[in-house]
Write a protein that binds this DNA or RNA. Structure first.
Lengths: 112, 112
DNA sequence: CATACTCGAAACCAAATGGTTACACAAGTC
DNA sequence: GACTTGTGTAACCATTTGGTTTCGAGTATG
């Protein structure tokens, strides 16, 4: 595995997104996480490796168990990206508002 | 090509993210987009195909040219996902604020 | 009509991805 | 010390991905 530490690549996989959501409420061990999925434990372990590599998740060893913690701050990288588009879709909303306002006026005229 | 219409998959590729940013200011033809990248035109064409399939981009044929338009609303799907984490990182900020506030108080006491 | 241009589609290829089974290793438990 | 348990790692495999070159279809332009 290449261990590409790219957040966008990391969240591209639906299983990894599910893991992140799982960890958003509580830290869990690798085994506990794997129990929530159909795929084998090593498969989940690999996903955790990828998530750890890109720092979306951190490890904490307690005895022989390894707890995985979510690092939500890292998600800001994605947020920064879509932020560049948020204004655009808000603009469109505003344009739609204008159109609706015009339609309303027109309808009002029609009624008269 | 599988034509998977998954927005997360679509923005996983850096070239595709660059294309989306390019189109955020203006609609462009396939050739004009390809001119901005090192890879060949067909490669870019494939990326556009993927972006079109998941509706991040729309096509408009004018004569023999095809203009690609950004559809920023589709990015909301990603926004909805990270929204679930935004509260978490904001929580952490608040906790940090509390810690800093306590430290400030403690320091004030020390001065006395 | 012939020619040039823009572009998508097909065929093909190397590399990356996601999965499995098998194994190794440290930490508790008897 | 022997045994079980929780994990990570290695080796391997099928599929997907991103790229290329080649071809064909449609649209101006002479």
């Amino acid at each position: 595995m290449d261990l590409r530490r790219d957040v966008f690549q990391a969240i591209a996989d639906p299983t990894r997104r599910a893991i992140l959501l799982l960890l958003s409420t509580q830290a869990l061990t690798a085994g506990a996480i794997a129990a929530n999925f159909d795929s084998s434990r090593p498969a989940v372990s690999k996903h955790l490796q990828i998530l750890t590599a890109c720092e979306l998740v951190s490890q904490e060893q307690i005895g022989r168990e390894v707890y995985y913690h979510l690092q939500p701050e890292k998600m800001k990288e994605v947020d920064d990206f879509i932020e560049q588009f948020r204004q655009h879709w808000e603009e469109r909303f505003n344009q739609l508002d204008k159109v609706l306002a015009v339609m309303k006026r027109e309808r009002g005229k029609g009624k008269k």
